[in-house]
Design a protein around this nucleic acid. Structure first.
Lengths: 103, 103
DNA sequence: TATGTTACTTACTTTATGTAACTAACTATA
DNA sequence: TATAGTTAGTTACATAAAGTAAGTAACATA
């Protein structure tokens, strides 16, 4: 285990490479959304979504807002840090458009 | 499980989000390297590295070249498809520089 | 003959994820 | 008042993926 790779870059990948994380952020780039919306939009299980949203909150990338309506409405939205991943995700999208074949 | 997300993008993420894949590609952006070099540079286990390199070959992103020396030397290098991920990885690097704190 | 080299593979353990049922805190309906 | 319905989770259990460490093939050198 050498240390030839930038630790910030490694940290970034350790966040983004966790399954579902990038898709959750991509989804939230469309605007704030509630738990069940994210769940059904990207097909992640509630168990993992819950885990990821907590991680992303800890990383300061996502904000959780409780609206005291009935039934309770909880909104997840991106912080500036979360939003700033947009160019990277767009680059991945461009790569996909050019290199990934449609199924 | 809706289908609101571009399938090409999802496919791209399913490749890139597999643990170690992005780091392997990032490492190979420096030039072709052999198995044990990649292994020690990024700290991936041989078991998984072997698996990932096979996947990446199947996806047409990595080429495996055998040099009949003693002991045998096997070089892994990026194809155009693999190399073209550079802008996306650079964007992640930029994001990391701006937003990830040094430890 | 024993040791060293690279590039793996195999067997086994630990961790991560998927699945589906369950809970809390309410409201609406019968 | 009991029953069912809502969202946002959590829990327990099963399966899949990754880590660990030893083993193998095919050579060469000491």
């Amino acid at each position: 285990m050498d240390q030839t790779i930038c630790p910030k870059f490694e940290k970034a990948l350790s966040i983004m490479n966790k399954r579902w994380t990038s898709l959750i952020i991509f989804q939230l780039l469309e605007g704030s959304q509630r738990f069940c919306e994210i769940e059904s939009a990207i097909g992640v299980s509630g168990r993992v979504l819950s885990e990821r949203l907590k991680d992303l909150e800890k990383e300061g990338m996502v904000t959780r807002t409780v609206h005291d309506e009935t039934p309770v409405r909880i909104e997840y939205s991106l912080t500036d840090k979360g939003h700033s991943l947009k160019p990277a995700l767009n680059q991945i999208q461009s790569w996909a458009d050019e290199w990934v074949e449609a199924e």
